[in-house]
Design a protein around this nucleic acid. Sequence first.
RNA 1: GGUCCGGUGGCCGAGCGGCUAGGCAGAGGUCUGCAAAACCUCCCACAGCGGUUCAAAUCCGCUCCGGACCUCCA
Length: 491
Amino acid sequence: MQGELVIYNTLSRKKEEFKAIHPPFVGMYVCGPTVYNDVHIGNCRTFISFDVIYRYLLHLGYKVRYVRNITDVGHLENDADSGEDKIAKKAKLENLEPMEIVQKYSNGFHDVMKDFNNLAPSIEPTATAHLLEQIECTQQIIDKGFAYVSNGSVYFDVQKFAEQNNYGELSGRKIDELLSATRDNLDGQDDKKSPLDFALWKQASPEHIMQWNSPWGKGFPGWHLECTVMSTKYLGEQFDIHGGGMDLKFPHHECEIAQNKAATGKEPVKYWMHANMLTLNGEKMSKSTGKFFLPAQLFSGDSELLDKAYSPMAVRFFMMQCHYRSTLDFSNEALQAAEKGYKRILIALQQLGDIKGASNSNVDVASLFKRAYDAMNDDFNTPMVVAVLFDAVKEINLLKAGEKNISHEDLSALKKLFDDFLFNIMGLKLENADDHDSALSKGLMDVILELRKDAKSDKNYAMSDKIRDTLKDLKITVKDTKEGAEWNYEG
RNA sequence: GGUCCGGUGGCCGAGCGGCUAGGCAGAGGUCUGCAAAACCUCCCACAGCGGUUCAAAUCCGCUCCGGACCUCCA
């Protein structure tokens, strides 16, 4: 393979060499969305980040089972809240069945994932389809003595668990600190022994629509439980990678570990990975403040905060220019910069097809490959890969200008560099490719450019400029080069 | 309040002890009927103040500023 892959593990707070538990198989679980609303672009960043990770592992030859759940049980705002859950609320608002809400926003989520060219996960389990397993797991934790029944609900006994385990190992929290932080927040938590305890099963009030039978009465599962149950069901009690957004680290992932260890006594996950947030004016995108974009708004430009529309691939490329563990600030200026840069790569790539191989080569393609692999192996450093690709673009332009030579072998290797890293690993794809490549467009453009060429040789520049300007209005750019005129879409 | 991150050139962002990040924007030049593109050159950044070191954007301390989590959240 291509060097050693190193991954930053949140659990150890260090970069660690990646060693699959059962090579060549890799199990990866990523927390998916709760489908009570449209996913916004911040949500998408996490899934794009893990898509790249998934793609790279596949590229390295691993057989990856990628599980990403859909949370279709409506959870409460917090454990003290006894009213409706989010899905039920939304259902009432839109006058739909809760399961219609689930379907509607699941569909929307899938569409958006497709827009961004994310690969589908291997398994996409839903919480409601795993209620039996969740009830079993709850019972198991009760049997082990780490949970208690209280008034029709079941709570995880955090302090009991912490006597023998390090609760807080992932997020770096200490029980005492957590206790002091929540001291003045005790209202409505009478059922719990301690404010730190979290629900495994929650009793449903009669008006609560989404509820199921259980040994403890009618209710619904706690939020953290589904991921514990579905990850171990499909990936085993111990698996390689668990991912999610930074904001899930505590309490969600911490509770998952606790549930797993309480149930099986084993440390469930070898590498915990967390993708950082997308910010807007330096602050996390959030629905409550109204500071966020929906993908649809981004693609249409329909928002006061946007100067124009951006294509899904321009947005994806924009995200590739930042490391997944850093926050990324969203701005028109930054997005436009990414859009232009991406376009430059695509144009160079298109021209790569016209370059002829020579007998000798003074383009060091091997070193470009090495740098790209080194970057990916260093905890998926995509911004570095992008820098390498821009260096490759420069080489292409020099080749085109006849200032460098390349052998046939290196030429196909150079093409492979882009196929591998830009398309297969970073998951970019061509846009408008169909239009540009259609025989009709090509034929028409050939005719038009031929006419323009005639005008030019007659020194009828008024005519040739008119043709160029008119095409410009149609978002087709014509450039005169030594080899004749070239054309491109948009800009 | 507690815990934890981060402050890099006009903008976005890598780097994290010595070696050019990169993109976008800007300036000059080459080329060109003119444009555009491309290429060349320039724009020598690391919040502030101390310290460690032969050497610090990179390590340590303090100060200032921003953010995340501690409740549902990607």
